[in-house]
């Protein structure tokens, strides 16, 4: 399937949007995960709370995802 240059740029843009969100989430989760594991080592009963904090930055990835979907819709890719 051949696509035009506009659609190709839109697809790249969508990719960048989701990649940015994913990188941001990864950076935030690495710090939270390290601190969280430290807490679990001391207080294993706090695992639930740590897990909850660990998934908090995933919102960034979701924003990236929403933006990429909007770009793709606008470009007629989906």
């Amino acid at each position: 399937m051949a696509i035009g240059i506009d659609s190709a740029i839109a697809a790249i843009g969508a990719g960048i949007a989701i990649a940015g969100g994913a990188i941001g989430t990864g950076v935030a989760q690495s710090a939270i995960g390290a601190a969280g594991l430290g807490l679990i080592a001391e207080k294993p009963n706090q695992m639930g709370i740590v897990l909850l904090f660990l998934v908090l930055p995933e919102t960034l990835l979701i924003f990236g995802f929403v933006i990429s979907i909007l770009i793709m819709i606008d470009a007629g890719l989906i």
């Binding site: 995933e58 919102t59 990835l61 979701i62 924003f63 995802f65 929403v66 979907i69």
Partner: peptide
């Protein structure tokens, strides 16, 4: 604004 948007994760 961000919390309602956060529900888009269901789609994701």
């Amino acid at each position: 604004m961000t919390h309602p948007l956060s529900y888009a994760r269901i789609l994701g």
